[in-house]
Design a protein around this nucleic acid. Structure first.
Lengths: 200, 200
DNA sequence: GACAATGAGACGGTTTCTGTCTTATCGTCT
DNA sequence: AGACGATAAGACAGAAACCGTCTCATTGTC
């Protein structure tokens, strides 16, 4: 499969370019020069050009992000453990990822928008798909989905705007914070969202 | 002097931009946005635009480089001490300066040319002007000039192309290497360059 | 209120970048 | 050897970005 190798070469080159210059400053010609692949080949592998290439890189990085996450969640023994491991691992990975950090820092307009407006739903969706199997070992599917949805939003929010009250990169703190959250969200009496509540 | 403050603001902004994106990727509009100074004001402070701004930054960085150097050389007790201190300090400063490193690494064609073709003579000249007073405390002016000239070239060369034999960032190694060099260059019998020699 | 300094941004000319296309080269298969 | 698919090299036009200049509005100071 020569195409796979080409795709990898190109995306690796894009990654190096982004590391060096930041997202907004990388041109297709930079990638061509860095990858050693010809312009024509690049457009054959990624028809659509610039946007498609960067989109492919985002997808690859997101895949990688969640494969690390699932590896961390593998050995969890109970629901809270799954949740804490996932949240902490995600937080630490986001923090350690200087490339993502650069994406966030370099161009507030463009790149932050990438994460919030476009990337946010995708991350939540992906978290749902990827982590649901691990959560449904302990709670039914609807509860799992609601749990993952809320927690992925919380994780991203606390990464983007860290709080002085709790550090999601710190396992004990995260556990203390998440314990009641998980408890509430898994209570059988939990009302469906967007519906009027009878009690009170 | 509002102009001085403006100049500083702009150059600081350029420095941040260069740190973030590398020399070749910084535009005037980036600097304008980063500095918060208007385009018109920038061109009033630096008539000539882009080239002049970057030139001013280079000058400022060179000034700063040598002010650090002279501070190091202040307390030297003999000629070899002056030389070793200067060479070691210059080498370490060059190595620690990630911005210069980025200039060297980012664009071999453009930036390395900046140092060798254009920057090199300037550094040598500046070294001469700045360090001569400290060297003439121990040897006559013509000898001092020759010494500084040779040693600044050696320093830059060993920085750009490190040798396995000697590390100019290491005081003892530098001293061992430089001792005979200094001795030879300060020998009264040293023949003037480019002239035929009578002996032998 | 006059005036100098600065910000905001429009504008034309130039350069750079993009995406497509053509041609040449290379390796492989028959 | 010759045919063929894949890739490199690069020309090209249209679009976008950038540069440097200019005008005008705003601000702060006397």
């Amino acid at each position: 499969m020569t195409d796979a190798s080409l795709e990898t070469r190109i995306l690796d080159a894009v990654e190096r370019c982004v590391n060096q210059w930041g997202f907004t400053k990388v041109t297709i010609d930079d990638v061509v020069a860095e990858s050693g692949v010809s312009r024509a080949t690049l457009y054959r592998v990624f028809p659509g050009g610039r946007d498609v290439v960067f989109e492919a890189l985002r997808v690859r990085r997101l895949d990688n992000f969640f494969s690390v996450l699932t590896a961390q969640v593998e050995g969890a023994v109970d629901l809270l453990d799954v949740v804490v491991r996932a949240v902490v691992a995600a937080t630490l990975e986001l923090r350690a990822d200087d490339q993502l950090a650069a994406m966030l820092a370099s161009e507030p307009g463009e790149t932050l928008g990438q994460l919030t407006v476009e990337g946010f739903p995708r991350i939540v969706r992906m978290a749902n798909v990827t982590l649901t199997p691990y959560v449904t070992r302990f709670v039914p599917a609807p509860t799992a989905q609601r749990l993952i949805d809320v927690l992925s939003r919380l994780t991203i929010s606390y990464f983007l705007a860290p709080s002085a009250d709790v550090d999601f990169g710190h396992t004990e703190q995260a556990r203390g914070f998440l314990r009641p959250v998980v408890r509430v969200l898994t209570e059988p009496s939990a009302e469906p969202p967007l519906s009027p509540v009878s009690s009170h």
